[in-house]
Simulated assay, not measured.
Amino acid sequence: MDTLTALTHRVSVPRLTEPGPTPDQLRQLLAAAIRAPDHGMLRPWRFIVLQGEQRERLADVMEWRLLKRQPDADPNARENLRGKALRAPTVIVAVAEITENHKIPAWEQVLAVGAAVQNIMVAAHALGLGAMWRTGDLANDPDVKPRLGFADKDQVVGFVYLGTPAVEPKSLPDETPDQFLRELPRG
């Protein structure tokens, strides 16, 4: 698949199943990620790749967070939440490891990791894989960062779920770029 086709036809795939990416595909996805634009060459991206039973560790973090907020959470809620870590064969946790007090502000470092995740998404589509980028409250919880091995200054940018599409992906609306263009105000 050529680059423009991958960029203009990529869609998120929320329902994923086995098989996940092969070791070679995973290497290609991460190689694409680290070629993202990066003002200052800070290389702020860090990735945790979870496959198979390793996903249970993310499920543990999710359940721990739930119980911290709702100590009396019922077993169904706990199991439902744990299932979120297992909804794809592979999960990549993408984190911006922020270089503090640098001329490149933290928000630009986070954007660089966002661009790295976008590269993963497009590369996954080009390789015939399904991918879904999720964040949610877990990504912004300061108590979760140390459980993932990161400092308070760092930012979880997303959880990228990868696998084989379980159903035919929905197509995006037929839109044109001119729908999103704006004029610069005068004066």
Rank of each mutant, 00 (worst) to 15 (best):
M41H: 12
T22W: 07
H9F: 04
D174M: 06
V144Y: 04
R55E: 05
R69L: 15
G136T: 09
E63D: 12
F180H: 05
A77I: 03
T176C: 06
F159N: 00
E53D: 14
D74H: 09
P177K: 02
N101W: 12
R46Y: 13
R69G: 08
G83A: 06
L111W: 02
L67G: 08
R78Q: 15
L7R: 03
V156I: 13
G83P: 01
T22S: 15
R182Q: 08
S12L: 14
L66V: 04
A131K: 00
L127T: 07
T90P: 10
W107P: 00
E168L: 12
P185V: 14
D60I: 05
P75A: 05
P105M: 05
F47S: 09
K103H: 13
K145Q: 13
D38T: 01
I92S: 08
Q155G: 09
V93G: 10
I48Y: 03
R27N: 12
T164K: 06
P146L: 13
Q118V: 04
A77L: 07
R65C: 09
L4N: 13
P75S: 07
A115N: 09
P71W: 10
K145H: 15
G136M: 04
E100V: 14
R35M: 09
A94R: 04
D152P: 04
G40R: 08
S12W: 02
Q155L: 15
V110A: 11
W45P: 00
A6C: 11
M121E: 09
R134M: 07
V93L: 12
F180K: 13
G128M: 11
L184V: 12
A116Y: 00
P173Q: 14
G149Q: 06
M41V: 06
Q51C: 02
E56S: 08
A77G: 09
P165G: 11
L7Y: 02
V156K: 00
L7K: 01
V110W: 14
G158A: 04
D38A: 15
R134G: 11
A106P: 04
G52R: 03
